[in-house]
Write a protein that binds this DNA or RNA. Sequence first.
DNA 1: AAAAACGCCAACCGCAAGCAA
DNA 2: GTTGCTTGCGGTTGGCGTTTT
Length: 332
Amino acid sequence: MGHHCCSKQKVKRGLWSPEEDEKLIKHITTHGHNCWSSVPKLAGLQRCGKSCRLRWINYLRPDLKRGSFSAQEERIIIDVHRILGNRWAQIAKHLPGRTDNEVKNFWNSCIKKKLIAQGLDPKTHNLMPTSRPPATVAGPNASQFNHPQPPTTPFTISSPSKSYDAMKSTSMEVDLSMVNSLPPSSLPFHEANNISMSSYQYMDCSSVMMGFKDHNSHSSIDFTNSSSTIDHANISSSSFQPPGFMDEASMWADAVDTLEAQKQNEAAVIAQQGNVQEQAQHLVGYNEANEKGLEMDAYNSAAFDLEFMESALMPCRVFCSGSAMEQLQWDC
DNA sequence: AAAAACGCCAACCGCAAGCAA
DNA sequence: GTTGCTTGCGGTTGGCGTTTT
């Protein structure tokens, strides 16, 4: 069965030969592709237009980045997938030179398995309840770790009621310090809006995340708002709106709403298990910790959850860049 | 060494959205 | 409003190379 564009033609299927590639490249580079359905005929190819389009987009395009995914790219995929789900085309837009097909394949062949191995549901990114027994810790500090998961979250992204000190006292120090060491997001958002990496990195992400006014008193994104949602009206009232800002900002605002709702309970787990890892590293290191009765499972789960914590902060990074824009506006 | 199992990934398929007639 | 076409997307398949038995 053929496509609309090629149902009346005899078309070749399967892998593309170098000769076919050459024909397609030559045609596209000289004539472009105003209409894919006419490309095969004009290029002298026995393929359907759809096949030509796919071949060009996924393989022949000159701006494609070949080779394996970097750790940062993997991080971004996980971050964005957590929020957007299997919207590969959207995810790929955050990875210059990568295609949706490539991202999808990488997810299915690699990341998915990693998440499952770490006890996470790759669809929801939530901990799979039956996949990992509750971590238990033996030794002198056992009582600190072995209590049931607290029913309430130690923080929320836009919580108005938590002071910075309160945050620190609920074992978030390690995470806060990590925020500022995060690599800059590769979201094209920044490039599109001329936000330099230096100004982006300068922003105190943790303060933004906590709803601190100090650094962001000029910000139109009010993280101290009692509502758990971002104030879209305030965002739109900004006089500094580079192209694409509203779309991106709205998308991420929505995304954070979703993220917050989904992750509040997990935050408690993360904070607690983060302590397990921190404690282990601080006191002894992995091997000794094991000897002292810190179970590998506890260590691994804590390590993973810290990683999760980092990815959960991605929307904050995005909002930081929003704040950076406001800062620029103020400075000007 | 050979067969089977596995994993990766290019390519295909079907569906939906957008658009023009 | 309907139809036909094109494009774009996500799910799935199948070929091929690699690893395991």
